[in-house]
């Protein structure tokens, strides 16, 4: 569903991604690990279409579309979802209002009828329940005054509501307490229906106990320097990154 080929990208004239190739098939979970500053978030941002990154060469095909040609909102509507490493606040805009606008836009693109307010509210409350979130979450401003962990849980809530086909999770596990980590993992596993693809950026192999990946990749210096199965993460935990190069 996602084919990344020899992707090279720059920020402010500095090459950050240095020829990345990655293929995610429907149903697969790929974990991406690697030292700080190696380009993991950059990869996620480039896939989601954030401004400020210049793709110099390579291609990205998502479900037959050339993803690099689409605006960020179009990618989102096609089913690309990014859970942010550092979610921002939007003061005064309630989570409910934000989520409704998002679900409306995506349903419209899929030519589904708009959900009326009560139907949407019910859906949102149900998802909160599944994720063991207090429904008061929905009334608060988007991430406004949320704790670090709450912001991450809010990302999972958004993912659960939007039911995207490609989920990019950038360190969603960082900052979650042990129980929240399990709940978040359940949220991800609930979406694993064999059709969706997942790319999990993480520093901790512990997450992979809950969400068992099909592949683990190590990103260093803007390149994938090693790929393996679940066991690679355990090896990294034990030995660190230095032995790879």
């Amino acid at each position: 569903m996602l084919i990344v080929k020899d992707l090279v990208a720059e920020v402010d004239g500095k090459t950050i991604l240095n020829g990345i190739s990655l293929t995610v098939k429907p149903g697969e979970v790929h974990a991406i690990m690697g030292p700080n500053g190696s380009g993991k978030s950059t990869l996620a941002n480039v896939l989601a279409g954030r401004d400020g990154y210049e793709v110099k060469s390579g291609e990205v095909i998502f479900q037959g579309h050339n993803l690099l040609e689409l605006a960020p909102e179009e990618r989102a509507r096609e089913g690309v979802f990014l859970a942010f490493q550092y979610p921002v606040e939007i003061p005064g805009v309630s989570n409910m209002q934000f989520l409704k606008a998002s679900v409306d836009a995506i349903r419209k693109h899929r030519k589904l009828p708009e959900l009326d307010a009560p139907a949407f509210m019910k859906m949102a409350r149900d998802k909160c329940k599944d994720l063991k979130l207090n429904p008061d979450f929905l009334k608060r401003g988007v991430n406004e005054g949320f704790s670090g962990g709450e912001k991450k849980r809010n990302e999972i809530l958004q993912m659960a509501l939007l039911e995207p086909s490609l989920c990019l999770l950038d360190e969603t596990d960082s900052g979650l307490d042990i129980d929240a980590l399990q709940v978040a993992a359940e949220g991800v596993n609930a979406l694993r229906d064999g059709k969706r693809g997942f790319v999990l950026v993480t520093h901790y192999q512990r997450l992979l106990n809950y969400i068992v990946p099909d592949y683990v990749h190590v990103l260093a210096g803007g390149r994938i320097v090693k790929s393996g199965g679940r066991e690679l993460a355990l090896e990294l935990e034990e030995k660190g990154y230095s032995w790879i190069q």
Binding site: G49, P72, F81, E89, F98, S102, A105, V142
Partner: peptide, 16 residues
């Protein structure tokens, strides 16, 4: 830009 990108990443167009 971060706020705008968050919205757009969720499918909401820039004007909205």
């Amino acid at each position: 830009d971060d706020q705008l990108f968050l919205c757009r990443q969720r499918g909401i167009d820039e004007e909205k």
